[in-house]
């Protein structure tokens, strides 16, 4: 066989206890950035990040996404105001602790809508809706650039997952260049009302899905942190064992 054909793959990908390689380091040190500097990100950097998104895996190579880059400060502020307006409306009808409608009616409406939209109205986003309505939290965190990822509903099997994979590729690429990013799910509120749907041309097959804030981070937010250890089921040699990922394994 020709010796130059294929370079031999090493037996062990990474020796145990070895230091993190650069890619692992970017993955482990990535933190969501919620405070940005005013400085705009250079255009070529944004283009490089989009390139990372273009080459991400998708089901059946359907690439069910469309990117919209917004670098207009006024436009981002206007989107912010739109999100705040809708959060206020939701809080008015759903937050029984502060609604002027009294306690009982919003409580009943909340109980019904939470059952319909369990994940969207999980306590954490529910709290975020209230915080945004009160003006304590910003949806776009004052980022100079926002990349909107529209989902193409004609995609193969689960287009939303492909959007997530594509977005994470871009996020990791951005962090490897020293930028900060944050996922913003609240862009979904832009689908209410015709204004933004007309402006971005969001009609079938496209749908608002997620957005990524992009900018130079304030301070140094990236770093390794502690996370909960996690139980993993492990099947090997005809037996099942439980593995404690991140902690010490308990041998049964």
């Amino acid at each position: 066989m020709d010796e130059t054909a294929v370079a031999e793959t090493p037996e062990v990908a990474a020796p145990s206890g070895d230091d993190w390689n650069p890619v692992e380091r970017v993955i482990l040190e990535r933190r969501s950035v919620r405070k940005y500097k005013d400085r705009q990100v250079p255009e070529n950097v944004v283009r490089r990040i989009l390139e990372a998104g273009r080459f991400s895996p998708s089901a059946g190579n359907s690439q069910p996404w469309k990117f919209v880059v917004i670098r207009d400060r006024e436009m981002i502020d206007e989107m912010e105001r739109h999100v705040v307006r809708w959060c206020r409306l939701f809080r008015f009808f759903l937050d029984w602790r502060s609604s002027p409608l009294g306690r009982l009616v919003p409580w009943l409406m909340a109980q019904v809508s939470i059952r319909v939209k369990r994940n969207q109205l999980h306590p954490i986003p529910f709290g975020a809706i209230c915080l945004i309505a009160e003006g304590k939290l910003k949806a776009f965190h004052g980022a100079p650039t926002v990349i909107l990822i529209l989902e193409d509903r004609r995609g193969v099997s689960r287009p939303q997952v492909d959007v997530g994979v594509c977005g994470q590729n871009m996020v990791l690429a951005a962090h490897s260049m020293g930028l900060g990013t944050c996922w913003v799910g609240f862009v979904e509120l832009l689908k209410y009302g015709l204004k933004w749907r007309r402006k971005f041309g969001v009609e079938f097959p496209y749908r608002f899905c997620e957005a990524i804030c992009l900018g130079y981070p304030y301070g140094r937010p990236d770093g390794m942190i502690e996370r909960e250890v996690m139980e993993v089921d492990w099947y090997e040699d005809g037996a099942k064992r439980s593995v404690c990922q991140g902690g010490k394994d308990v041998t049964a």
């Binding site: 990474a14 145990s16 206890g17 070895d18 230091d19 993190w20 482990l28 369990r118 999980h122 306590p123 954490i124 390794m224 942190i225 502690e226 996370r227 909960e228 250890v229 996690m230 139980e231 404690c244 991140g246 902690g247």
Partner: peptide, 26 residues
């Protein structure tokens, strides 16, 4: 440091999660 995870109970209960640890280079 954050050392206790949130858990809202019932439908939103967290499962199969333990204490907080740094990433481990296995």
């Amino acid at each position: 440091t954050a050392a206790v995870a949130y858990d809202f109970g019932y439908y939103f209960k967290k499962l199969n999660r333990g204490e907080f640890r740094k990433p481990v280079p296995y």
